[in-house]
Nucleic acid binder design. Structure first.
Lengths: 106, 106
DNA sequence: CGTGTAAGGAATTCTGACACG
DNA sequence: CGTGTAAGGAATTCTGACACG
């Protein structure tokens, strides 16, 4: 577990119409949150936006915040805070002595 | 693990152009394998095909077989065979005594 | 600030068919 | 059998703007 799992969750392959259906948001809203730097879809060569499942979860989270009256500006700084915390989680966990013994006894 | 994991792999959300890019197949080929009953995309209300990541893996597998000269007919029966084996795997694994003890000692 | 909408154009996708072999 | 292609139409997506508040 952790950040990258080589999974499908982060592959940007979903176009905006499908994102609209999955999130219940309007395309206007989805594009607006991009101008507010809250989501970052890829672009196909011809300029079509492509989103990941992770993006969809983020959009739903954004929508929930907006409903509560939170501004996009605040949502962005909250996301940045979370990003900083994630980086800390990535620091390798030190193995406990007992676990090391369990691993290496043969 | 097993069949359904509530994951993103089976969500049919990818349109054919993206599938073309991900598989390297032509749209003609992708649609043809559908008429041969090898892949089963969903359809949006307006009739647009939507594929899952699982479909993409299946398509790649199909392409490999075709390259080896295998006919779609044979590929289909091979897929059906695999399907039957999958059903067997789903039979719940009987717990080994020691494991049961480990689980229930409190 | 966040979102709706009409506008015009460009890119995507669909189906049925003709072709080759 | 498996795949390419041209054809015409329908659905999708894009951008920049006006609007409201």
């Amino acid at each position: 577990m952790g950040v990258q799992e080589g999974n499908y969750k982060d592959k940007k392959v979903i176009s905006i119409g499908t994102v609209r259906e999955l999130t219940g948001l309007s395309e206007r809203q989805i594009r607006y949150y991009e101008t507010r730097k809250l989501v970052f879809p890829h672009r196909s060569k011809s300029g079509i936006r492509k989103y990941s499942f992770q993006d969809i979860e983020t959009l739903i989270e954004i929508a929930n915040h907006i409903e509560e009256g939170v501004w996009t500006r605040e949502i962005r700084s909250e996301f940045k805070k979370k990003e900083r915390m994630k980086l800390n989680e990535e620091v390798p966990v030190t193995l406990i002595k007992g676990q090391i013994n369990a691993h290496f006894k043969m």
